[in-house]
Design a protein around this nucleic acid. Structure first.
Length: 256
DNA sequence: ATGGTTGCCTCGCAA
């Protein structure tokens, strides 16, 4: 089973690119972030025509996540527990072939020192609690998405440029480590221990052309899923296209 | 250095 994560930066603006990639890469499961449309406005027909079932959690203009699967999606859940007043569409969850697939768009948090950063840190605490709950229940799971976290300096082409950024601040990295330290595996790092790889390049300053990227899109897996990891790749091809998203897909391969 | 780019759909905000 191959599971992909991709921040598409508007599913409507990116529809052709996203469908092209799904046809070529043919993942069994994909989680998409920043669909930037309401649930009812998601272009369902085009994805269903490729054989995907859909679980969509959208909102107007901003955020929005979706889970795509060629196999049935059981026990669908939208929204992350822990804050009933949170109206931002950033989390979707469903079980596919016995694996709980969690698709997430973690808050950016910039600028640091504002309520935006407080919201990010609180959201990370809620995500950790969700992972604890799934672990306690013995549920095999995979968390994929745009974490908006640069885990280590080697995950940025120019780490000095990010030292005061919400994606790389100590409190951000500390919470990411707390999540991983529950016993999760960063699939790409585990399978590419000495590699340099990025999943995001800013639209500005020719970041893509200069390969001035950061690795912020991650697939974290629980121990039983980690034992099934065969590969994890970052597919840079879509980032080089016309009208590209600023993110590119990450794909994990699990043995059966 | 407060630029630079993209998407939403308003004339600014978020990334």
């Amino acid at each position: 089973m191959r599971v992909a994560t991709w921040n598409v930066n508007s599913v409507k603006a990116r529809l052709g690119n996203v469908l092209d990639w799904l046809r070529a890469a043919d993942p069994d499961v994909a989680v998409l972030q920043e669909i930037k449309c309401e649930t009812e406005a998601f272009p369902r027909f085009e994805f269903e025509a490729l054989g995907y079932r859909l679980l969509v959690h959208g909102q107007k203009s901003y955020n929005g996540v979706a889970l795509l699967s060629k196999d049935p999606i059981e026990d669908p859940k939208t929204g992350l527990d822990g804050d009933d007043g949170d109206t931002q569409a950033r989390y979707v969850e469903g079980t596919v072939r016995g694996v709980r697939i969690c698709g997430l768009y973690l808050p950016n948090g910039n600028p640091a020192g504002t309520e935006k950063y407080d919201y990010k840190l609180a959201w990370m605490d809620r995500l950790r609690r969700r992972a604890e709950t799934l672990l306690a229940a013995g549920t095999p799971f995979l968390m994929g998405g745009d974490f908006n976290v640069i885990p280590e300096a080697r995950d940025a082409a120019d780490p000095h440029a990010w030292v005061d950024d919400a994606l790389f601040l100590l409190e951000t990295r500390r919470r990411f480590r707390a999540l991983v330290n529950l016993g999760l595996t960063d699939a790409w790092r585990a399978l590419n221990p000495t590699a340099t790889g990025y999943s995001f390049w800013d639209y500005q300053n020719q970041a893509w052309q200069a390969d001035n990227g950061i690795r912020i899109d991650h697939i974290l897996v629980s121990p039983e899923v980690a034992d099934r990891l065969d590969a994890c790749i970052i597919d840079r091809e879509p980032r080089g296209r016309d009208k590209a998203s600023d993110h590119t897909p990450v794909v994990a391969t699990l043995s059966e």
